[in-house]
Design a protein around this nucleic acid. Structure first.
Lengths: 201, 201
DNA sequence: AGTCTATGAATGAACG
DNA sequence: CGTTCATTCATAGACT
């Protein structure tokens, strides 16, 4: 059976969360996290990175989608019986990854003002390293890594048009690599205590 | 086959629309409905519920898939100029019910849950007219021909917003069709919740 | 048997 | 943030 929970295809065109990643995200969501702020996203992203490749934007989208969908049709929870997959596809065919089974312990938001933390996700910026590996004739032996920051999400012309949205999509001859996620480096605990504690190892 | 479509196997794992349900959905689609909003979905779902078990999300997915696939199938468009007005350029691959569209007046579902008295009625389905758009080689991607809404029934002064049907392309050769839902409670006429009238051709 | 295909379901990504 | 698009996974039914 294609019960290969470990996702098949491995189409590197789109993030395919692993079972562990989904589990963690789901837990966080269940715990109440709805709109993680940049810092939280970073943390989660970093944490989940241990289970597989993941970018911060994936985390961002995941929560956005999960939240939006929970209310669209998942609200009509009635079936239960079958519940094809979705929520609990786990079954963990086999914890593909090592037993780095991590559980998370997070404290519920202390106060209501928690959601206020997030404001602009436009703030998110990523640094890409563009390796100009043009192996063409007359290539400028200039392997300089041009680092440019670009917005993670294509913003609309509404605001911050001050910046130029450079689309650094994977182009021929040059590959982009993400080296860092956000413009901020969290060093302390976020206001909203969200801790990821892994135990078992 | 499941001519009776009375849900034979009862594969509770996946919705299996009955012939009647598919017919209605197909008609609605061919009539121009592409992305029903929540309310419309609810209506359709309720209506189709008389023919068999169905959830709102099924309706949602149905339209989503139908639209996506139709479009996906429309990629090879490479027709050589055909007679102007050559309305019938099927393209539909599987031309479902290309003809039987005429006067499809759905019989009122007789289920215990009848029409609840809606204090006010409003047009739930927009009616749009789309005339034949012959696709020529270079201009087939005509934006949206501003569809216009027309009413058959004496609608009150409802806002004629017409939900800016941004995507009206697709089914080339679309004739004039009209759909409309209206609440039964509004009148003491026989409980007809959904009426689908097609004309043209 | 097995394979195709149509299509229901899901979800990542993105738009407005 | 609600909505929509694009891909993909999964499976019932049809065909050989």
């Amino acid at each position: 059976m294609e019960a290969l929970s470990g996702r098949v295809g491995v189409k590197c065109g789109r993030w395919n969360p692993t079972a562990e990643q989904v589990k963690v995200l789901t837990e966080l969501f269940r715990a109440g996290l709805r709109t993680p702020n940049t810092e939280q996203i970073q943390r989660i992203s970093t944490y989940l990175g241990a289970f597989g490749k993941v970018e911060s934007k994936n985390i961002f989208y995941w929560f956005q989608n999960h939240k939006a969908r929970e209310r669209h049709h998942h609200k009509k929870r009635r079936r239960g019986a079958s519940s094809p997959d979705s929520g609990s596809n786990d079954e963990d065919g086999r914890a593909a990854s090592q037993e780095a089974e991590a559980d998370l312990v997070l404290k519920p938001p202390e106060s209501k003002r928690e959601a206020r933390s997030y404001s602009h996700h436009h703030r998110l910026m990523t640094c890409y390293v563009r390796d100009v590996v043009e192996q063409q004739e007359g290539m400028w032996e200039r392997p300089m890594r041009e680092v440019e920051t670009l917005e993670l999400f294509p913003l609309k012309s509404y605001d911050l048009e001050a910046e130029k949205v450079r689309y650094a999509r994977g182009g021929a001859g040059e590959q982009c690599r993400e080296i860092s996620f956000f413009d901020v480096a969290a060093g302390r605990d976020p206001p909203l205590e969200l801790r990821l504690c892994s135990f078992g190892l």
